[in-house]
């Protein structure tokens, strides 16, 4: 086994800093200055929170709808069903995220196995 740990160029690191680190860290830095006296319940924050909640849900949906790798070989209903079973386990276990992950994983493993993966 051998890995090209650093990749072929500097580009992935520059991309990580510019497209991932800076766009997220900017909010944390802003918080340092705003942490005195900002109203968490202001209208703009409520709106932005709703936008990000929808966006995060969309991220999950897009992984389930159009996954990469071998997950794409499992039918859509099984991918969505596994997530729903995980969510059901979460509700039934009084909010155990671990139970959700374990149950969802068992479902997707069974589905993938029965489809010959």
């Amino acid at each position: 086994m051998s890995f090209d740990i650093l990749g072929e160029s500097f580009a992935p690191y520059l991309m990580l800093v510019v497209l991932a680190f800076l766009p997220s860290e900017i909010w944390r830095v802003l918080a340092i200055f705003l942490s005195k006296g900002l109203d968490e319940n202001s209208e703009i924050i409520i709106w932005v929170r709703a936008v990000s909640t929808a966006l995060l849900t969309g991220v999950v949906a897009s992984i389930v709808l159009a996954p990469s790798g071998s997950l794409a070989l499992v039918p859509l209903w099984a991918r969505a069903g596994s997530v729903l079973m995980g969510l059901t386990a979460y509700m039934l276990t009084r909010r155990s995220v671990l139970a959700s992950v374990v149950v969802g994983e068992i479902c997707i493993l069974f589905a993938a196995w029965s489809y010959g993966l």
Binding site: T53, T57, S68, G69, R79, I108, L109
Partner: peptide
Amino acid sequence: AAMLLVSPLYFFTTV
């Protein structure tokens, strides 16, 4: 396939 579903599972449950 199972590993690729860990993130959306964890993520959706958390949201």
